[in-house]
Amino acid sequence: MSVLRHRILVIDDEPQIHRFLGPALDAAGYEALRADSGQEGLRGIALWSPDAVVLDLGLPDMDGKEVLEKARAFYEGPILILSARDREVEKIEALDRGANDYVEKPFGVGELLARLRVALRQSMGPKRPAGPLSLGDVVIDLDRRLVTKGHAAVKLSPKEFELLSRLALSQGKVLTHKELLVSVWGAAHAEDTQYLRVFVGQLRQKLEDDPGRPALILTEPGVGYRLVD
């Protein structure tokens, strides 16, 4: 009996990317689908309903961010951006428009596959953990609003707990500074990134073994934060 494989649509106009990524996805147990332009990619998403999409920003017929925006009108699955553009504003805009993650070219296939696995888990798993979330010796119980580290209760302020909860509910997804600020403090604080850094620093002091080298709350430089999956 054949095993049903996750279908991954790669939208990229570079033939070498398809030659490299297609076999890598196949070896990892996925079915690789191909599109060479934005319009082709949108048709592919509508026709094949892939389990996830890997989308390049530099397409010949339209900007990848436009493809992302159009796709989000009818597609709810994970979309990972794959691009040579390394400007922070590009990453932030793509994430704010609905991308699940962003991988820069040149990239390691191991990293891309790991991020793809995380994105697929996010889309298939429950939106809210069924029970307490264990991350090493840190346990986050969202229902009881209780956080422990090494079995000792950690005292968090209401905003610290709200910020940690938002990160926990994202299940490893990168959340931009703006997303976190708006969801925790409101739209009036959308640009207060220094305010956010202070609260993340406070959480790290309380939860990390070494706050100077965080292993739990990870920084995506210039973009935002993610809770380790």
Rank of each mutant, 00 (worst) to 15 (best):
L169N: 06
I92E: 13
V139D: 04
A73H: 10
I45R: 02
G29T: 04
G150A: 00
L33Y: 05
G22K: 13
G224D: 06
V10L: 14
A130E: 14
P132L: 02
V67L: 03
L9H: 02
R197I: 07
H177G: 05
A28L: 08
R166L: 14
I11F: 09
G58M: 14
D96N: 15
L169F: 04
D61V: 09
L113W: 01
P106Y: 07
D209E: 14
D101S: 01
H6I: 05
H6L: 12
K91M: 10
D51E: 04
P23T: 06
V200Y: 06
L163P: 00
L142N: 06
P50V: 03
H177A: 09
A27G: 01
T176P: 11
G29D: 01
L169W: 07
Q194G: 08
D143K: 15
M1W: 05
A215W: 00
R87H: 10
M62F: 02
S165V: 02
W185R: 07
A168R: 03
Q202K: 12
E220I: 07
K149C: 03
I17R: 08
T176G: 06
L156I: 04
R166F: 12
R97V: 00
I45K: 00
F199D: 11
Y225T: 06
E69N: 13
D63H: 15
G77R: 05
A27T: 03
S134A: 12
S170L: 09
K91W: 08
D143C: 09
L142G: 08
D56V: 13
T193N: 05
Q122P: 03
F161N: 10
P158F: 04
F74L: 06
F20R: 15
L216C: 00
G186C: 09
P126K: 14
P60L: 08
V53E: 10
H18G: 00
T148C: 00
A188T: 07
L113G: 02
I11V: 15
I140Y: 07
D13Q: 11
I11N: 00
E90T: 14
H18T: 01
D51S: 13
G29E: 00
G110H: 15
I11S: 01
V118E: 02
E40W: 01
A99F: 07
P106G: 10
V154S: 07
H177P: 00
Y30K: 14
L167P: 03
D86Y: 00
L116M: 11
Q205G: 13
L146S: 07
P15T: 11
R117P: 03
D56Q: 02
S157P: 04
G150C: 01
P60N: 12
L164N: 09
L47K: 02
D229K: 06
D86F: 01
V198E: 12
Q39S: 14
L68V: 04
R226F: 13
P132W: 04
L180K: 00
P132R: 15
K173A: 15
G41R: 00
D101M: 00
A168L: 11
G186W: 07
V109E: 01
I45P: 01
L203Q: 04
G98W: 06
E69H: 13
Q205T: 10
R87D: 15
R19S: 13
Y225D: 11
A46Q: 13
L80T: 01
A99C: 05
S170M: 09
G77A: 05
R128D: 03
P23K: 09
R197W: 06
L80N: 01
L47Q: 14
P129D: 03
L181I: 08
A24E: 03
S183E: 15
M124C: 12
H177T: 05
S170T: 08
R72L: 03
